[in-house]
Design a binder for these strands. Structure first.
Length: 424
RNA sequence: GGGCAAGUAGCCAAGUGGCCAACGGCAACAGACUGUAAAUCUGUCCUCUUCGGAGUUCGGUGGUUCGAAUCCAUCCUUGCCCA
């Protein structure tokens, strides 16, 4: 199976330029994807472009990761309804470093001629003068062409308008492709389907300015069946950086996927073969309650991103927190409590417990809730458990009888948010 | 520079002198049902609260009024049109 066929059954191809498949089977091809340095870590949304590069490398081609230092300073209008804030050079440089470190985990940067490579478009744009740009780049593309782009049209017809800076974005990005074509012999660009317009501007520029031929394909944007935003949880973005999103939370994110989503995602986010996926789906359909599909999905991705060891830790924590829902909290050892990851820990003065404190004040003062009113409302709604027992009465006194091992209290806010309060 | 329109909670969006902490929708959080899903139903959703209330909001500032998101002035921002 060649690269395109492979990606196609995985549902990773949205648009593809004619001739791309032939080019890929003809010779070792360099292909690139652009990454946006607006944050210092990549989140799981960027996992898709990363996977495109990984697949490319596996298929015997050379991946380039372009960090949009220059374009990040401008802001892409695609899919945005509003003008973006501009970032300073310093922040962009810092973010670029973070991204680089993460990419190194997924791509092989040291395997001969197919080694992955990282480039930053700031490097060729910082020297570029305005005159140079409008003469050598702008000259080749008509405004009519640029205006016809969906991303531009929407903004012009909408009621927010669009600055010249953003309008120029597609040219700047298109020039990236041209530059890589000329200087690195890069003939392929990949990206999310929202990038299609910008990518085509690039191939157009290559055709007109260099008389060359370049190729491209895009991957559909990842969506959720319920229309929600992919990659967001209660706590915000799901990041690839374990400092920002712990491996446990990362694992949980995938484990919580809906059936419909998981079925799509397992093809996109894992390297399982077509027959393996078919087997898993069949097994899942037989007994959906087992959630074999989600478990496998979560396992594959967590191992891929964080490694086997972290995955196993996440599993252990998961089992402790969820598998024996009915087991009394007293059965957990001190080690279990201390080592559970994904549990937010806080300290609390022991005297307050010994003298007894009402549940509402306790929840507010430990920071589990931001205010007493908030805590009270959730308790009234049945949303708080202490040591795995639902708090039925908001007048409950918290005292030493609730301490596990003489010093811990395990608090649950909802079903999935655990807090461990340690008295000192 | 001139003309017109608009700015309301995280977002969309009603409200055009008191009944307004402000209809409705989305998002979010919690509960029930489940499979730590989805769908559905219920509750919460400006801040604090001793759950009785209290305090701060409707682009900013000043004003009119017993009383303003609502009227007036002025400034700021955005869009459209003209120069």
């Amino acid at each position: 199976m060649n690269l395109i066929e492979e990606l196609r059954w995985r549902g990773m191809i949205q648009d593809i330029m004619p001739g791309t498949e032939e080019q890929l089977s003809k010779e070792m091809t360099k292909g690139y994807v652009g990454f946006d340095p607006t944050a210092d870590s990549l989140h799981i949304g960027s996992l898709v472009p990363i996977l495109l590069l990984v697949h490319l490398q596996k298929a015997g081609h050379k991946p380039l990761a372009l960090v949009g230092g220059a374009t990040g300073m401008v802001g892409d209008p695609s899919g945005k309804s509003e003008e973006r804030n501009l970032l300073s050079e310093e922040i962009l440089r810092f973010n670029q470093e973070g991204i680089r470190k993460q990419l190194e985990k997924f791509l092989d940067f040291n395997c001969g001629e197919r080694s992955a490579e990282m480039v930053n478009n700031y490097d060729w744009f910082k020297e570029m003068t305005f005159l140079h740009f409008i003469r050598d780049v702008g000259k080749h593309i008509t405004v009519n062409y640029m205006m016809a782009k969906d991303s531009v049209k929407k903004r012009i017809e909408g009621d927010t308008g669009m600055s010249f800076t953003e309008f120029t974005y597609q040219l700047v990005q298109g020039y990236d492709f041209y530059w890589l074509y000329e200087n690195k012999k890069c003939k392929l660009q990949m990206g999310g389907s929202d990038q299609w317009g910008n990518i085509v501007t690039g191939t157009e520029l290559i055709r007109r300015k260099a008389g060359g031929e370049a190729f491209a394909f895009t991957c559909p944007l990842i969506t959720k069946a319920d229309g929600g935003k992919f990659g967001k949880t209660e706590k915000g973005n799901v990041w690839l950086d374990p400092q920002k999103t712990s491996p446990y939370q990362f694992y949980q994110f995938w484990l919580n996927a809906g059936d419909e989503d998981a079925e799509k995602w397992i093809k996109i986010f894992t390297f399982l073969s077509q027959s393996e996926v078919a087997d898993i789906l069949a097994a899942h359909k037989k007994d959906a309650g087992q959630r074999l599909l989600q478990k496998r999905l979560a396992r594959e991705i967590t191992v891929f991103v964080h490694g086997r060891e972290e995955y196993e830790k996440a599993i252990v924590t998961t089992q402790k927190l969820f598998s024996n829902q009915d087991a009394p909290a007293e059965s957990l050892s001190i080690e279990d409590l201390e080592e559970m990851e994904g549990v937010i820990k806080s300290d609390f003065a022991k005297e307050r417990i010994l003298t007894g404190i009402d549940i509402v004040s306790f929840l507010a003062e430990t920071g589990i809730f931001s205010s007493k009113g908030d805590a009270r409302k959730t308790v009234q709604g049945g949303g708080v458990s202490i040591n795995r027992k639902k708090v039925e009465n908001e007048k409950l006194k918290v005292d030493s009888s609730l301490l596990l091992h003489g010093q811990y209290i395990l608090v649950q806010k909802g079903k999935k948010n655990y807090f461990l309060v340690k008295t000192i």
